[in-house]
Simulated scan of single mutants.
Amino acid sequence: MMDKYDCIVIGAGPAGLSATLTLGRARRKVALFDNGTNRNRVTHESHGFLTRDGIKPKEFKDIAVKQLESYPSVSISNETVIKVIKDVQRDLFLVNTSNNKSYITEKILLATGIQEEFPLLQIRQYYGKSLFSCPYCDGWELRDKPLAIIAENDEHIIHMTKLVFNWSKDLIVFTNGHQLSNKVRNDFESKKIKVYTEVIKNLHGDNGNLESIELESGENILRSGGFVVPSFYRPNKFAEHLNCQVDENGGIITDSAGRTTVIGIYIAGETEKAGPSSLMIAAADGNKAASSINMDITLDRF
């Protein structure tokens, strides 16, 4: 007979790790599943997390896992969850993994995060080392350098350019074929921000360090780093398959405390809004969702 868990947490990013810690300290039997695909694995340093500013993502995760080992009711498995099935009759969930193993739990916390899609495939070679998506996370390290803004959507271009201008005044915007309105171009030019609307042909650099951006015309513009605006997506459809309600923007509807519209299914971190979040906020979301899980179990059993 399979062991029954109080909660299974899927995803060991900051949200999942934080939730597991809270549940372990609440003496709940919890299993944490992770397959090592968390989004920040490609970056060399993580910033903005109080007492851990500049830590390597792997070190951050290793410290968290080591601390979780202090709690005997917590187990950690490096397995990929491929399916979650709701057993309506028993009011439980069946979790299947790629290792052909199955687990039973009362509650599920989805903390699988999101992944990026870039306007140029080449960006992946530089992402996390000289090209980034979050100025709050990496703007300080790129301060005062000649930077590129690579984005294709008016709203994204305006937002990112204005934001990055706080860290460096030496900016050039690359829209990769997208045309900007005269007003936006004039606003940028008044700040001495040049705009190239040509399609980008190539990125040049060495070992992940950007050196220049080549346009279709053959012109090469020297840049030593910059910021891109990717699109984001959830790497799985667990929430949808479990009939959790989703809003018009693809976000999963919650009560703001981690509870979805399906009893027993909770969500935390970037998974909820399908948008980026800082380590600090994701960890706080995990703590909040775990508190909801613990309270619901308490009320169910008292």
Rank of each mutant, 00 (worst) to 15 (best):
T97Y: 00
S98E: 13
S98L: 15
N100C: 06
N100W: 07
K101E: 12
S102C: 10
T105E: 01
T105V: 10
E106P: 03
E106Q: 15
K107N: 15
I108T: 01
I108R: 02
I108A: 00
L110H: 05
A111N: 01
T112G: 05
T112D: 05
G113A: 06
I114D: 04
Q115G: 12
Q115Y: 10
F118D: 08
P119W: 03
L121M: 13
I123T: 08
R124L: 14
Q125F: 12
Y126W: 08
Y126S: 00
Y126N: 06
Y127M: 14
Y127S: 07
K129N: 15
S130G: 08
S133Y: 13
S133L: 10
S133D: 09
C134Y: 00
C137I: 08
C137K: 01
G139Y: 05
W140A: 12
W140L: 13
W140D: 01
E141H: 09
L142S: 08
R143A: 15
K145V: 06
P146W: 03
I149D: 00
I150F: 03
I150T: 06
A151I: 06
H156I: 03
L163A: 01
L163F: 15
F165C: 04
W167N: 09
S168D: 02
S168W: 00
K169Q: 11
K169P: 04
D170F: 10
I172Y: 01
I172P: 00
V173D: 07
F174D: 09
T175G: 04
N176Q: 09
H178Y: 11
Q179T: 13
Q179C: 04
L180I: 12
N182L: 12
K183W: 04
K183T: 12
V184K: 03
R185Y: 02
N186E: 15
N186Y: 02
F188N: 03
F188D: 05
K192E: 11
K194T: 15
K194C: 08
V195G: 03
I200M: 05
K201Y: 00
H204S: 14
G205D: 07
D206Q: 14
D206L: 14
N207K: 15
G208H: 11
L210S: 09
L210M: 10
L210H: 10
E211T: 12
I213D: 05
I213W: 07
E214W: 05
L215W: 04
S217H: 06
G218A: 10
N220Q: 14
V228H: 02
V228E: 02
V228K: 06
V229N: 04
S231V: 13
F232V: 09
